[in-house]
Design a protein around this nucleic acid. Sequence first.
RNA 1: GCGCGCAUAGCUCAGUGGUAGAGCGUCACAUUGACAUUGUGAAGGCCCGAGGUUCAAUCCCUCGUGCGCGCACCA
Length: 697
Amino acid sequence: MSADFTKPYDPRTVEPEIYKKWEKSGYFNPDNLPQPAAAKAKAGEAGTFTIALPPPNVTGSLHLGHALNATIQDILIRKKRMEGYRALWIPGTDHAGIATQNIVEKELKKDGKTRHDLGREKFLERAWEWKEKYGNIILDQLKKLGSSCDWSRTRFTMDPEYAKAVETAFLHYHKKGWIYQGKRVINWCTRCRTSLSDLEVEYKPEKGKLWYIKYPLKDSSEFVIVATVRPETMLGDSAVAVNPKDARYKNLIGKIAILPIQEREIPIIADPRIETEFGTGAVKVTPAHDILDEAIAMDNNLISYQVIGEDGKMTEEAGEKFQGLKVKEAREKIVALLESLDLLEKTEDYEHNVALCYRCGTMLEPLRSKQWFLKMAELAKLAIADVKSGKVKFHPARWEKIYLEWLDPPVGGLRDWCVSRQIWWGHKIPIDGVDDVLDTWFSSALWPFATLGWPSQTADLKTFYPTQILSTARDIINLWVARMVFSSEEFLGKAPFLDVIIHATILAKSGARMSKSLGTGVDPMTLIEKYGADATRFGLIWQAMGGQDIKWSEEHVVAGKKFLNKLWNASRYVLSRSDSSDCEISKPPDLKSESNKKIIASLEKTEKEVNELIDSYDFGQALHILYDFFWHEFCDKHLEESKSDSSEETKKTLIFVLSTSLKLLHPFIPHITEKIWENLSRSGDQGYLIIERWPKA
RNA sequence: GCGCGCAUAGCUCAGUGGUAGAGCGUCACAUUGACAUUGUGAAGGCCCGAGGUUCAAUCCCUCGUGCGCGCACCA
């Protein structure tokens, strides 16, 4: 028994010590794992098990969701490793284009500079410097949590080899004619000065106004009244549209209205997509600043007037009176002008959703812009097929609906993916002279195979691909998961993973999302410092029941700490009753004592249930069962009964139950179980629990 | 507008077609010998509401209410 095993358990010293021991062993790298013959036979010809860690953004720091997700993956990896698989967990980070660029720009701003003052090359130098300095913080935090990733295979989405994969993918699509350049209405962030894809938009309800504007009819004293929440866009109107079935306007279709202020003649047209219930049922059409209006304009051959520019200010086409004004200023001016012309019928309070940039929260402007697009029609089919055929399964299954409905929307169709961004930090578009870069998610979509060396046919790619499991958060099911599936099918002809675990979302106790700005966020690092990584993992998994959302409660981490203490002390007691020669950890044969028979039967039942529960990704339930068995059945009952029984059979039973429990608990609370294992190991035999045989009845 | 999830003890949550469970909290008792980060025990619940199916509903079905979330061509 080592000296420190006589002391109370102290995670602060044990956890770093044990982590170093694992790193030194090399066992996080599957190439170094011993290969038990039995395991090979079981696992099939390859006998490998791979998970690609969802690469955290280099801008991020670990939050509870990351910690839960990492723990889930570590449990799976550790169990498989113990089962004899060559388990590989590939770590890495994502360059996070817009997010990183914004941070570096903020730093520059402190010196009163913009990126344009530095120029592209110098700016990128600064961005790389930032990445080198801060980009791996989150990986170090994952280490503190005990994650058994193969750090020797750490990847970054802008590694030279990875860039090769991105370029290959882009050129492949281009050759197929699926990549094209086009000018159309996209989401534009005036702060980040870049386009965004449809998935990168967040909506927030806002209390605004609905303005009812009178458009005079040509050669008539009458008006057609349109309702809008954005009066400033009227400067770019090129038609008024009504529903063809709307009896109120039947006689107006084909007539001409005069657009006030611009004094432009615009037609009144019919389009079935116009809702008769909205406003007056007559709608202004602004082809350059609204996606639906653009579609209407295409079908009706309307002219497009771009009145808002990429800087968020009114353009020349908006007219002299407005050019250079910010959108809000233009709005006020227009409303005042319309009022003075007696063309404002009325104003109503109106709550509607506004579109915001998912990176900086700025209100987005839909505007026409020349961008690169990736055709989605065929790719979406690939992604749909893998899930519909059951090749890729979601856990819980209900999430497949989110996935399928995005790929095949019940209304309209999936729009092509706008893959170009007007920022500097990212992968340059191979055939583009304008210096645009690719959407970060274009490179993330290649993650499971680009990390293994694709497009080169590396040994790793052959051995470890496809991966088995992807564990991630629900909010990137479409942004990321769907795109990985079609990318993998397109480039490698197979699904990138078989099971997709959508883990719980961790909420504040109020049931609302955790928020840094509201101070409701919980930092896992603080928990690790306070209670240790094992206790933190315990607290997270204890609450992870059936994939339901977790209203975070720290008391379960405290419970974890208490459990570790119980485990530590029970182990000390069991070992104090035996000398090292007793530490045979095989099942004692021919038990005579009823008490021993009972605890072994109970252990075997627990073992079976834990196996089933982990295999069905019900980690919380598995931990509850282990907790209950170890504490209440083994410690409270059997250990107490055994105190009056010093027989060899009982000693052997105690050792066997303890050692099997340690194995079963190891994926959940790896440090302490490994530490106890050190003390349990037979003299001279420096065993590693991390590669001990997993108990399976 | 369409869709999804949740509602069970003070709190966070399991669970089952037939007397309702855990962790934490509370209360009482127990203390030199693995552990007080403990042990033994107790109190505490019209299992959201209404209707239906059933011999029997907390569980299945319908409707509703409340909370959270997603999607939409949110003009």
